[in-house]
């Protein structure tokens, strides 16, 4: 993981100088015994425009994805502030709109467009990209030893899991487009699979009560197990079973940095095209599997069929471009 220096974090996430020192007065005694120090935010990824950290927000057991857009030294300062604000707010507004209309995206917990940060609900689980990588690695022999498509996967459960996931992806993208939002960067890294809430995997009547090991964590919109709610207990990719996630996980859309709320069929079709290309590079039987995404997408809202027709134009243009380029 790339190292980071404190200045890659915005205030107040960098230790804030004590107020007494800032005003030049002698330091005051601490009011109350200091609580256990918070582990510093952990850098998850570093993109071209933004850094993504995992940390706690509001309470120690509310895990948060903190997206920070640092100032760009090469841009004029006033212009840079305007751009940072515009992008951050475009992302936050799309997330809030989606969430209130029931599309699965991280909740917005807080934002400061002057400092350049956006605090979102942390989605436990794996990106679809990571999940498919793990899955294909685990079941390497199942799929690549035969040239047959995934439907002929010797393990019918695995093939059913893949088809089921495709259906859930199609549905998720359909819901997004239905409410008039286009994503703008719909890759397999920007789709996540979250473990289902325990209640839905346990037969009715056998759920643990709230006292016995399960509780509801505020601001996450989901029931969580105790282990999941302790932020200090870090999460790693190995904590998740890729096969179980494929079978039972829910699909969440993330990274709305390029999203727009003025959708044309063209933009919707481009979303689908970008996703098709992204899947194409992650799975040997992608082309066939992606038909399932499109099938479910096509049935998911009223304008879906027009967007699908437009997809054919976008594909044709894409082929032409790749022949020239």
């Amino acid at each position: 993981m790339a190292p980071y220096t404190p200045h890659t974090l915005p205030p107040p996430f960098t230790p804030f100088p004590s107020t007494s020192n800032a005003s030049g007065e002698p330091p005051q005694p601490a009011l109350l015994p200091a609580s256990a120090p918070l582990p510093p935010p952990r850098l998850v990824t570093q993109g071209a425009e933004s850094l993504l950290f995992r940390t706690a927000f509001l309470t120690l057991d509310t895990a948060c994805a903190l997206k920070y857009r640092p100032a760009k030294a090469y841009r004029h300062a006033a212009l840079d502030r305007r751009l940072t604000k515009a992008r951050l707010l475009a992302e936050a507004r799309s997330l809030v709109k989606c969430r209130r209309e029931g599309v699965r995206v991280p909740a917005v917990l807080g934002a400061d467009w002057v400092a350049g940060w956006l605090a979102m609900e942390w989605i436990p689980g794996l990106t679809i990209r990571a999940c498919l990588d793990h899955f294909l690695h685990q079941h390497h022999h199942d799929i690549s030893s035969s040239s047959a498509p995934a439907t002929a996967d010797p393990n019918p459960e695995h093939s059913a899991a893949l088809w089921g996931l495709m259906a859930r992806v199609g549905r998720a993208v359909g819901r997004l487009h239905e409410i008039g939002v286009v994503h703008g960067d719909l890759t397999t890294s920007n789709l996540m699979i979250r473990p289902p809430p325990p209640a839905t995997t346990i037969p009715a009547g056998l759920e643990p009560s709230d006292e016995s090991g399960e509780r509801i964590s505020a601001a996450t919109g989901a029931r969580k197990t105790d282990e999941e709610t302790i932020v200090a207990a870090e999460e790693s990719e190995d904590d998740f079973d890729a096969t179980a996630l494929l079978q039972h996980g829910t699909v969440w859309l993330i990274d709305f940095g390029l999203a727009a709320q003025t959708p044309q069929d063209e933009d919707r079709a481009v979303d689908l095209y970008v996703l098709e290309r992204a899947f194409g590079s992650t799975h040997p039987a992608a082309e066939e599997l992606f038909q399932e995404v499109l099938r479910v997408y096509g049935e998911s809202y009223k304008g879906a069929k027009t967007a699908l027709r437009r997809l054919e134009d976008v594909r044709a243009r894409g082929r032409k471009r790749s022949m020239i380029g």
């Binding site: 809030v96 969430r99 909740a107 917005v108 609900e121 505020a218 919109g221 989901a222």
Partner: peptide, 21 residues
């Protein structure tokens, strides 16, 4: 209903964060 309360919280926190934007 517990879940719908949490959903409500998610939306409200977002609307509060966007105030003044």
């Amino acid at each position: 209903s517990a879940e719908s309360r949490l959903e409500m919280e998610c939306t409200i926190l977002g609307l509060m964060a966007l105030r003044g934007s």
